[in-house]
Measured scan of single mutants.
Amino acid sequence: ENVVSAPMPGKVLRVLVRVGDRVRVGQGLLVLEAMKMENEIPSPRDGVVKRILVKEGEIVDTGQPLIELG
C-alpha cells in the first residue's frame, strides 16, 4: 500500500512529515480534523515519504489520497 488515503472527510490541520522522511508503521503522518476532533493519521507501513498530496488547511473527502510512500 503506497498511498495513504483519508479515512473520513475533514480538514488537514498539520502535516507531520516531509518528503524524504523515513517513517515507521503507526507513526503519525498528518492530523485531520473531523467533527471538531483531531485525528492523527498513521503510516500503514515502514517506508519513505515520496510525495505529500495535500496542504495544511485543505478540505479532503473520504478516500482522497494524502501521502505517497516509497
Rank of each mutant, 00 (worst) to 15 (best):
G47T: 12
E38I: 09
L29F: 08
G28N: 15
V23G: 15
V12K: 00
V12Y: 02
S5N: 09
M35A: 03
N39A: 04
V17R: 04
V60W: 06
Q27R: 04
R22H: 07
G28A: 04
M8K: 07
R45K: 06
R14F: 05
G70R: 05
G10C: 01
K50A: 08
V3K: 12
L53Y: 11
L53A: 14
M35C: 00
R18L: 09
M8T: 09
V54G: 05
L13R: 14
L29H: 01
R45S: 15
R14Y: 14
V12G: 01
G10Q: 05
V60T: 09
S43Q: 02
D21A: 04
D21K: 02
L32F: 09
V48C: 00
L69W: 08
E40Q: 05
G10R: 01
S43N: 10
K55I: 08
L30F: 04
R24N: 09
G26K: 06
E1H: 01
R45V: 14
G10I: 02
V3D: 14
E68K: 02
V4A: 12
I59C: 01
V31M: 03
I52P: 15
V54H: 13
R51W: 05
L53C: 00
V19F: 02
V19R: 14
E58L: 07
E1F: 00
R14G: 12
E38L: 09
V15D: 11
V31N: 14
R51M: 15
K11I: 10
E1Q: 05
L69C: 01
R24I: 14
R45D: 06
Q27F: 03
G10L: 11
R45I: 05
R51N: 07
E38N: 14
G63C: 00
V4E: 05
L69A: 08
R45Y: 05
V23S: 10
V23Q: 06
R24A: 07
P9H: 15
M37W: 09
G28D: 11
R51P: 03
M37N: 05
A6I: 08
T62Y: 11
S43H: 07
V17I: 10
P42C: 01
L16C: 01
R22A: 08
E33I: 08
E33G: 07
D46L: 02
V15Q: 03
K50D: 08
L29E: 00
M35P: 09
S5M: 11
L53P: 12
Q64V: 05
V17S: 15
K55H: 05
L32Y: 06
L16D: 15
K50M: 12
D61G: 03
E68S: 02
R14P: 08
L69K: 02
G26C: 01
V49M: 02
V31Q: 10
R22K: 11
M35E: 06
A34R: 12
P44Q: 07
E56T: 07
V31T: 10
G26L: 06
L29T: 06
G70D: 03
V4G: 03
G10Y: 04
M8P: 00
V23L: 04
V15M: 10
L30G: 05
I41Y: 12
I67T: 10
G57Q: 07
V12Q: 01
V17G: 10
G47L: 10
E33H: 04
A6H: 13
K55F: 13
R18T: 10
V25G: 06
M8V: 09
K36Q: 15
V19S: 05
S43L: 08
G47R: 04
S5D: 04
G47W: 08
E68W: 04
E38W: 13
V19K: 01
K55E: 15
M37P: 10
S5K: 10
P65T: 07
L53R: 09
V3H: 08
T62W: 07
R45C: 01
R45N: 12
V17Q: 14
K11P: 13
L13H: 08
E56V: 04
V60Y: 12
V15L: 15
K50H: 10
R51D: 14
V48S: 11
Q27V: 09
R45Q: 13
G47F: 12
T62K: 02
G20C: 01
G47V: 06
G10W: 09
L30R: 00
D61C: 01
P42F: 13
